[in-house]
Amino acid sequence: MTEVSREAILLDALATLADTLVVGYDVVDLVQMLVETSTSLFDVDDAGLLLADDGGELDLLASTSEAGALIETIALSAESGPCIESFRTGKIVAVPDLRTDADAWGEFRIASIDAGFLSTIAVPLRLRDEVIGSLNFFRREPGELNRRDLRAAQAMADMAAIGILHERSLREGDAVRQQLQYALDSRVVIEQAKGVLAHTHDLGMDDAFATLRRYARSNRLTLREVAQGLVDRTLIF
């Protein structure tokens, strides 16, 4: 990637983040955008962002695809893998080659390799002193991320945290946990709305999500708004 195009993508991401802070934007939309931007911004193939819920359990808020293999890989990482590790320690956890160093996280490693990933990196989502989640990147090639990409990854995580923090300040009085729960609840509604569209349009989950997002974008609505409308059956398309 040329430095110019990388810069353009970064600027886009920053502009969207600015939108969040200035005009208000749904946190799920923001996080989805960040996750997707990351794959074009630096050398990763898939990404997933997880937030901790009320009970401290990590829940997937956004991912680059709905592919079962990716979701399963992320789930295992959140159970026993780099994802939960980065969340617990608040540190970046990198596995440059999933085929070696098979001491830990066996189930996760096997699933990752089956899914076609050879390296992964988990970046903690920090909100001041607290770790609120983890942003996970997966690559089909082994190897470390270069320093520049690592910084970009951390920037993505920080942007997500800022977006969530900002939403929190919009809802004054809400504890961080409640705010995180709001984001995760949005995800529930979005999953339900995907089901609605999958049935009514006879689509797979990826296409259902794409349809949902297309509608949201062309009507200047948030993902949550469109999803809620579909689930409440006040919106039919």
């Binding site: 819920d53 009970g55 359990e57 990590l58 829940d59 997937l60 979701i71 399963e72 992320i74 789930a75 959140a78 529930v188 999953e191 339900q192 709305a193 995907k194 089901g195 609605v196 569209l197 999958a198 049935h199 009514t200 989950m205 579909l230 689930v231 059956r233």
Partner: peptide
Amino acid sequence: AEGDRFSRRIVHQATGFVIAQ
């Protein structure tokens, strides 16, 4: 289970199917 968030996902999607059906 509460912790099994990823299994919940498919339940939510199925819920959407039933809403539509």
